[in-house]
Design a protein around this nucleic acid. Structure first.
Lengths: 152, 152
DNA sequence: CTGGATCCCTTATGATACTG
DNA sequence: CAGTATCATAAGGGATCCAG
């Protein structure tokens, strides 16, 4: 959003390497939660944790193709928002279990509903895309032909 | 995600300046729709259009602080997915009305439900954040003290 | 008014190396 | 194993100019 916000250039060169989001910390607060919950990895984490609690690497494997960094970041954000509970057992080797809080379960339900909807309606979307793409292709060809005719 | 996917370097140098997403066009397709729908501007567009149809600039003003570029991009993506209907009247000056399709209305309902949920549960989230931040602050201080003691 | 094209900066994300 | 730190890169997003 606004690049030159009310952030003085000299102060706070990099206050926090803050995961997800930054200076928008000022807008409607619930917008932020929405973004956390619907973030690329947030969605997947919530869905996985809704099945059952997972350890860090379990989650990593279950989600697949997510870097440790992003998973950590996502989990921390969700934990801070009170959606995920982090249970770190002081053992060696370390073992940390992640699970949903009551709040998180509610969020997961919403997100899952959305995910299931997209799955159910996929055909419709696919059909719409084909129609759109073809229409645009046709339109482009017409335009090209027109331009060419004009040039001649 | 994957940087070096199966995209031949020579072919299609820039097939489409593609808005939102890129080479992940290969993964579970419904994941993509989910991302379109939950994208930063996608959410806001769906919510606004659920109220009533909007013209381009109406949407722009209603959402506020969104660049023309991103709004255009978002609308095109949603239109391609068959969620938004674009009605361009061939008049001067141009007038384009955007509205939800049946599919789009369903999506908007889901998204709105999620948005309303975050609004309702905001206090809980806020409280969780305070607790989290304070706990982490305390923890950090303890660690710093420990490190200092060790250095002495 | 709508939006396509471009330039450029910010941010998100991934790969790697390192600590507890 | 879990997580942090650092670095490099690609995608996201904004500003601007311009065309239909």
């Amino acid at each position: 959003m606004a690049v030159s916000e009310g952030v003085s250039p000299s102060a706070s060169p990099a206050p926090v390497p803050g995961p997800l989001l930054s200076e928008q910390e000022a807008m409607c607060p619930h917008r932020l939660v929405l973004e956390h919950v619907t973030s690329r990895w947030g969605v997947l984490v919530l869905i996985r944790l809704q099945e059952r609690p997972h350890r860090f690497s379990e989650l990593r494997r279950a989600i697949g193709r997510v870097s440790e960094k992003m998973l950590t970041q996502t989990l921390q954000t969700l934990e801070r928002d009170g959606l995920v509970h982090r249970d770190a057992k002081p053992v060696i080797p370390p073992r940390v279990d992640y699970s949903l809080t009551d709040l998180g379960r509610e969020a997961a339900e919403q997100v899952c509903a959305l995910a299931l909807w997209t799955e159910r309606r996929m055909d419709g979307v696919l059909a719409a895309r084909q129609a759109y793409d073809e229409a645009r292709r046709t339109h482009d060809e017409a335009r090209r032909a027109r331009d060419e005719a004009r040039t001649l």
